[in-house]
Write a protein that binds this DNA or RNA. Structure first.
Lengths: 208, 208
DNA sequence: ACAAAAGTGTTGTATATACACCCATGA
DNA sequence: TCATGGGTGTATATACAACACTTTTGT
């Protein structure tokens, strides 16, 4: 038991984990085993331990669910409305994470874990629907003024693959020549010299 | 006394309150009366009560220090490093607020409260230096892609006054004609018909 | 030889920037 | 009448958007 002179809320982190699979933007949800909202889908997350920072807590949760370290992780927003959680007052610091899908180790205990596209998302526990929406907006906005989408790519990739990522997230076609002009102007990419074979047609170059 | 099965951190809000006075961007600091960092300057803030939301808590603090309601308030970031506070684990949700200086009622008990320009800021308690820096960066960034600076204006103002606000925050001269072109294109401003007298020269028009 | 994706420049359009003079008022 | 800030337009540069054909490879 832990006692305090004044009441303390509980503090948690929840993570919106995005990846790209099958040419679609997907996010990770877990089916709740525990008490409130049991059996319902929710964002991965959990309470912050006293001996870890907020970001450490988020990283721990992330690794527990996906087996991945060293991913792009960004604090999203903090939610603290009164009745978010029926048990007690819980404040959650929401993070969002982007992962290249080939880095993900699917966990063994992962029966109640699945990836959902944005329009497949079921009813979520707590206020997680709101959090997911905010994360998606942030991601969309950042595509325009940052190179955040690179986080979805693996070590080596072709420009066409990168363009596909943009088209998938933006849900729109992008002009190939303008796109390549823009990407190359960033000077964040260099050629590997390697050439992609397979898939029955002309091969490509490149990497970041 | 309040007891919990698991340890809970304390949760606070801190607010970076900006205003413009004497042609300078200033922020509000209070001199700590209480135990940790006693006598040192710090951001206004305090613990979140269980019966209020985070934003409500921030608004309450804001009103306590400035006597102002209905101001621009935006969640900035949440800080939760381990040793931010020597007393116990404290997580703080930082907000930033913008106020038109003529709306501020200086509080009677305000002896240990003062406004500081960005380069006058003394050593601050906790990690408040970091929070102030983040708030200032956010404010600067938002000038470019939003109309956030309007929050510093009172009901009626002239275009020259608004331009002064931009020049003050950006620390740079702005072209008068281009500025007016941009502002009027926003269509967020309308003329009042009123005309400003005093100050010994040609009078101006306008309002938002 | 053909299907499929890779690769490559130019032109027009919109947006942002630079710049100088006359006007109205209070003292 | 003069000092002071208010008010106004145009020309240029820069960034963004539209657009079509040739090349390479695997089957």
């Amino acid at each position: 038991m832990y006692t305090y002179e004044y009441p303390h809320p509980a503090v948690a982190t929840d993570i919106v984990i995005f990846t790209l699979r099958d040419q679609q933007l997907k996010l990770l949800l877990i089916k709740r085993r525990g008490k409130p909202f049991k059996g319902q889908w929710a964002l991965p997350g959990g309470f912050v331990r006293l001996e870890e920072s907020l970001e450490t807590a988020a990283k721990r949760e992330l690794e527990e669910e996906t087996g991945v370290r060293d991913v792009y992780l960004e604090q999203l927003y903090t939610y603290g409305n009164l009745n978010r959680d029926p048990r007690e007052r819980v404040i959650t610091i929401a993070y969002f994470a982007l992962i290249a899908s080939d880095k993900i180790e699917v966990r063994a205990d992962a029966e109640a874990v699945d990836w959902f596209t944005m329009d497949e998302i079921p009813d979520l526990a707590f206020d997680h629907q709101k959090i997911v929406k905010a994360a998606h907006q942030r991601l969309s906005a950042k595509l325009d003024y940052s190179t955040i989408a690179f986080q979805f790519m693996s070590e080596k990739f072709t420009l066409s693959e990168l363009q596909n990522v943009y088209e998938t997230i933006l849900q729109a076609k992008v002009d190939k020549r303008n796109f390549r002009k823009w990407v190359l102007a960033l000077e964040r990419i260099e050629e590997t010299g390697e050439i992609k074979s397979a898939e029955s047609h002309r091969p490509a170059k490149f990497r970041p």
